[in-house]
């Protein structure tokens, strides 16, 4: 398999590390080698957080500009901030309401690079289910519903079930499923 580069970004406290963990464990279960890099320390205090994840026979943990096949962003401004990571033909999933993302000038850029972008009001989905800190899983569920790989719905769901701490498991799955339903509805429209 050709290497897959993934960037996950947002703000400190949004569960970016957990989201990376779900993706990484799912990849490992599929027999893929994984390597990634995380933000710790000072930057976690509400600052921009970015996590790199690479699947395949690789040694370097960082995604190079212009090479991310997948970009997840839990915040709109962070999505803009990390646009340069996107590869031609990449896909991005953003926690944003309706058509609030992207701005027109960014739309032109993304179209020029054949980037597919999809929005989900992930925070709203998570808040409505009483788990305001689980927007990360709503976005993952949403991603999984399109079935475009390289990691798929059932595999991701199994990982969440397996690695969620006991007290969060049920809620995590609920939010993941809700995100996934949003995606399916969108496809039917």
């Amino acid at each position: 398999m050709e290497p897959v580069n993934i960037v996950i970004c947002g703000l400190g406290g949004q569960g970016i590390l957990f989201m990376s963990k779900v993706l990484a464990h799912t990849a490992l279960e599929k027999g893929l080698d994984v390597i990634g890099a995380e933000t710790h320390g000072m930057a976690q205090r509400g600052g921009s957080v970015i996590s790199h994840l690479r699947l395949g026979d690789l040694e370097s943990s960082l995604v190079r500009a212009g090479s991310a096949h997948l970009l997840f962003s839990l915040e709109v401004n962070e999505a803009y901030r990390n646009l340069s990571y996107l590869a031609r033909g990449g896909r991005m999933y953003v926690d944003a309401d309706g058509d609030s993302f992207p701005r027109d000038e960014v739309k032109a850029f993304l179209d020029g690079k054949d980037v597919l972008y999809r929005n989900l009001p992930a925070s709203r989905v998570a808040i409505e289910l009483g788990s305001p800190l689980s927007s990360n899983l709503a976005l993952l569920g949403y991603f999984s519903s399109f079935g475009e790989g390289p990691l798929f719905h059932d595999e991701l769901r199994q990982t969440i079930e397996k690695i969620s701490p006991e007290r969060f498991r049920e809620n995590n799955l609920k939010v993941f499923d809700a995100g996934s339903r949003w995606g399916k509805e969108r496809m039917e429209r």
Partner: peptide, 21 residues
Amino acid sequence: EHESNALELLNSLEIPGRRPT
């Protein structure tokens, strides 16, 4: 492939910086 386009675009967007707090 040159990524300078993306950086120029980002600068033009004037996204507020996120300082740790």
